[in-house]
């Protein structure tokens, strides 16, 4: 049963403190430290400067918008490779596969990582909010309202897009993990993909099909359409196509990983 496999994977991840720390908690903790540290550093440089208004929601949206950066992606990859390819490393597939279906096992891992990535993103966003509150408390700056559209829509939308971008990396690490049977292989390939797509996307300006096929470009386009609709162009932005590409990447990579895993011989995992 898929529900049993998900319960088992969740239980297992909660016991794997190293992966939990580096894969789920480290990015939010680092974000919090950088927020507070940056604030203290700025205060020390600008003694006597007038207090700056603090937009908590704006900081959260900004944090979420940057939540799919290659740096955050590195920590997500640490999580996903440990969960998705760890059983090759520990030679423990032979313990698991006779107890549940292979598709269930891999889907459960993907679902567990998806939930953990979502939690990590939420914590990352909360770290930005705490940093904002710290800034307001120490500088005496007033808290101001979110100047954009609906705060909930922007928060939820940016969260969903960044999560989707990160899940493309997760699905890639699942596929590479199955192919290479190696956590390190999945981590390196995933990281290289994250870095290269980010660089290539930054070089592309027009939303051509080639550009939209790059997950980082599609994600950025969607966030721009959501947060700054006027800045896009006077033509309707191909947001549906961008979303379609992101979903296609996620579905295609996951399906390929599942198909290969289902047929894979587990001799020496």
């Amino acid at each position: 049963m898929l529900a049993d496999a998900i319960s088992a994977e969740r239980f297992r991840l909660l016991k794997d403190r190293g992966t939990l720390f580096w894969g789920v908690l480290f990015a939010p903790i680092a974000g919090l430290v950088l927020n507070i540290g940056g604030e203290l550093f700025a205060r020390s440089l600008m003694k006597g400067a007038p207090p700056i208004p603090v937009d908590i929601v704006g900081r959260m949206v900004k944090a979420l918008a940057g939540g799919a950066s290659p740096v955050v992606g590195l920590f997500v990859l640490i999580l996903s490779t440990a969960v998705l390819a760890g059983d090759y490393r520990w030679e423990t597939w032979r313990l698991l596969t006779p107890r549940n279906g292979r598709v269930n096992l891999l889907l459960a891992k993907l679902a567990t990582v998806a939930a953990a990535v979502a939690i990590s993103l939420v914590l990352y966003t909360l770290a930005a909010a705490v940093g904002g509150l710290f800034s307001a408390a120490t500088s005496g700056g007033p808290l101001v309202g979110y100047p954009g559209g609906s705060p909930l829509v922007d928060l939820a939308g940016t969260f969903a897009i960044s999560w989707l971008q990160l899940m493309v990396l997760v699905a890639l690490s699942a596929l590479v993990g199955v192919v290479t049977r190696s956590t390190m292989g999945a981590l390196i390939v995933g990281l290289a993909f994250a870095a290269v797509q980010s660089i290539v996307a930054s070089q592309m300006h027009e939303p051509s099909l080639k550009a939209l096929a790059i997950p980082a470009f599609s994600g950025d386009l969607l966030k721009t359409v959501l947060l700054m609709p006027r800045s896009v162009t006077d033509e309707p932005a191909p947001w549906a196509l961008a979303l379609g590409f992101l979903l296609a990447w996620l579905a295609g990579l996951s399906a390929a990983a599942l198909a290969l895993f289902q047929r894979q011989d587990l001799t020496r995992e």
């Binding site: 049993d4 016991k15 030679e91 313990l95 698991l96 006779p98 107890r99 549940n100």
Partner: peptide, 29 residues
């Protein structure tokens, strides 16, 4: 309906014996 121990069993190293059995029990439903 089958249990198997194929070659020397291995477990995720971060699990205790109790955790390993709990995880396998969950996996088996």
């Amino acid at each position: 309906r089958v249990g198997a121990m194929i070659e020397t069993p291995r477990y995720p190293p971060y699990l205790t014996a109790r955790d390993a059995l709990k995880m396998l029990a969950l996996q088996s439903g």
